[in-house]
Write a protein that binds this DNA or RNA. Sequence first.
RNA 1: GGUGGUUUACCGAAGUGGCCAACCGGGGCAGACUGUAAAUCUGCUGGCUUACGCCUUCCUUGGUUCGAAUCCAAGAGCCACCA
Length: 389
Amino acid sequence: MEVQSGSQESKPVGTFEILHEDRHTGARAGRLWTQHGVIETPVFMPVGTQATVKSIEPRDLHEMQAQVVLGNTYHLLLRPGMEIMETCGGLHKFMGWNKPILTDRGGFQVFSLSGLRKIKPVGVEFQSHIDGARFFMGPKESMAVQRILGSDIAMCFDECIPYPCDEAYATNAVRQTLKWAKTCLEQPRAEGQLVFGIVQGGEFTELREYCATELAAMGFDGYAVGGVSVGEPEPFLLKGIRDGLRKLPWEKPHYIMGLGDLWQMSEAVRLGSDMFDCVIPTRNARNGAAFTRDGVYPVKAGEFKADLRPVEVGCDCPCCSNFSRAYIRHLLNVGEILGVRLLTLHNLHVYHKFMREMREAIFADGFKDWQEEQTRRLRCGDARTRGGK
RNA sequence: GGUGGUUUACCGAAGUGGCCAACCGGGGCAGACUGUAAAUCUGCUGGCUUACGCCUUCCUUGGUUCGAAUCCAAGAGCCACCA
């Protein structure tokens, strides 16, 4: 089937076009055609684990020009459950979002809920974090759930290992991941649903290269690098990305899972990555952190008690256009939900703008300079005093 | 005017002779957060110190005691009832 883009063009679902490659780096700007529309890359995908990007709604997402959001297999299977999801006609209809959705496969919960599961050859025995009920999820179950969810991009069920992790364990996890990837690929899917394979391998270069090579041979619609940003020091994180990308087909979309530090994303783009997701801008907003192009700062801090400047000077998001730091700080400190919502809007706005600028810089063959400038600001800038008085 | 009660750190509130620089809430401050068990979690919240520790504290003053936030006396503030 074919999809229409903003212009009158149309291409088959699953097509990934690299529109331009930066002349001086590995960065590229592209377009991924999905069942629910075109995704322009590099792209940041807000995380909407439980069928909502916490505290905001689709209208907000459209306004900030979000192109695709995440949903989570594990969490949505537990609640509301697939019977209801089927009745409601899938995740798009259920949550009122008509643009692309990528569903995470529940494999991350193998990592994040490590105390509540047992890994077996055919899948993972989970114990629900809600009521303790035991249930099983393997590649087949995960894909079945993602089919019902009807996401545009389904992720392969895999084993995400922690950091640190010894080589023997990592090797075994890669073996498992590859076996499950093959099974996933054989499962029935929703109409137009793409499937991405996930490279694991921890900090071990050969393992990651091996995993990537094997996955590439299976022929996925796109590829993800997983097992990064699981608490490892930044040099290991970047190494994991480089190792993961090295053997992947260059012409397919590259998704770095869970990566959400602005500078780290720019670095990953420089190496040839296209897609990112992360809870940082949303979760940290709820915890009072304001993201700016000059770094992060806690708006909750007392020094902003009477600060009339917007959260970020020069920002045109709904939060900064209308409200002061003093007000946002007040809302957060008295526990008013509006504070959380406004700061979430701001942070996501910053993220999306960052991605759009990256894309422009790539088209202009100026990615290197752009990134250097951003690095200076993000890592050495003073977020708190941005814009002077 | 009389009788009874009460007074603890920013607020509330434990503690009623040594284990008390004083439990616990709230508030305040700081930090953490990378595919969401997260509008969460951690630390600090008398002074000086990185810390060990030292110093000054539980309304005020005086006393009892080896030792007092804790017991006694007087005073002050607040509360209740009686006149």
